[in-house]
């Protein structure tokens, strides 16, 4: 474990806590893409299959349970909770995310570390996570003004993977035989997708103005 990965995990956890706070405090999920939440739930379920077979550490197990539990709870809330689901921007959240799932699965069959079921699913979860934020970014551009908590949620979600890239660079130089090229390339794509969001988020912070994404 290194400082980049730990702050990365804490940033990821913070993004989930901010999202839970927004939904719980405002009883609203306006501006949040249900499709991105469903993709993230699928990412965690596909990646953490080894939850009960490979014990890495208490930290690792606890975080996996938190990520799976929170992502499923958010999807359940947005689909079932009568007050929350009323505020869901159904007509704006129309990105066809099933194509993302199919595409990532095909890519995982072709490009993986080893053509074994767990490895293919792991690669699938890595590719899917890289593109899972697209419905959310599309929704933000369509909905124009972004409330603070939603903006902070998306910012933290993007920042965590940037910290993981620093972690991979650090591990590459400090650990012999360390290679996570699949995760690293996908992580670079994932972080690049946030580039313009980061730019407008920085502008809104610098000018102390409301976060506005050009539609």
């Amino acid at each position: 474990m290194n400082v980049f990965r730990l702050t990365g995990d804490m940033t990821h956890l913070a993004s989930i806590l901010v999202l839970l706070l927004k939904i719980y405090a405002t009883k609203s999920c306006s501006g949040i893409s249900l499709k991105t939440q469903e993709l993230y739930a699928l990412v965690f379920l596909a990646r953490y299959l080894n939850l009960f077979t490979d014990f890495i550490s208490v930290y690792n197990t606890v975080m996996k349970l938190v990520f799976i539990g929170s992502s499923l709870a958010i999807v359940w809330c947005m689909r079932m909770h009568k007050m929350v689901k009323r505020s869901y921007d159904q007509e704006l959240d129309t990105f066809r995310h099933y194509f993302l799932i199919a595409g990532c699965f095909l890519l995982a069959l072709l490009v993986n570390e080893k053509f074994m079921f767990p490895e293919v699913l792991w690669a699938f979860s890595i590719y899917l996570e890289a593109v899972s934020t697209i419905p959310q970014l599309v929704l933000l551009q369509r909905s124009g003004n972004v409330d603070n908590l939603t903006g902070q949620y998306v910012f933290l979600l993007g920042a965590y993977r940037a910290l993981y890239i620093l972690n991979w660079i650090y591990r590459y130089f400090t650990e012999p035989h360390f290679s996570r090229w699949i995760a690293c390339v996908a992580g670079l794509v994932q972080t690049a997708l946030y580039a313009d969001f980061f730019y407008y988020y920085f502008l809104s912070w610098k000018n102390n103005a409301k976060l506005q994404l050009p539609s």
Binding site: D54, K64, F67, Y164, H177, S179, A183
Partner: peptide, 10 residues
């Protein structure tokens, strides 16, 4: 040495 195959990251 053995490549660290374990997926120790989240």
């Amino acid at each position: 040495g053995k490549k660290n195959k374990k997926k120790d990251e989240l």
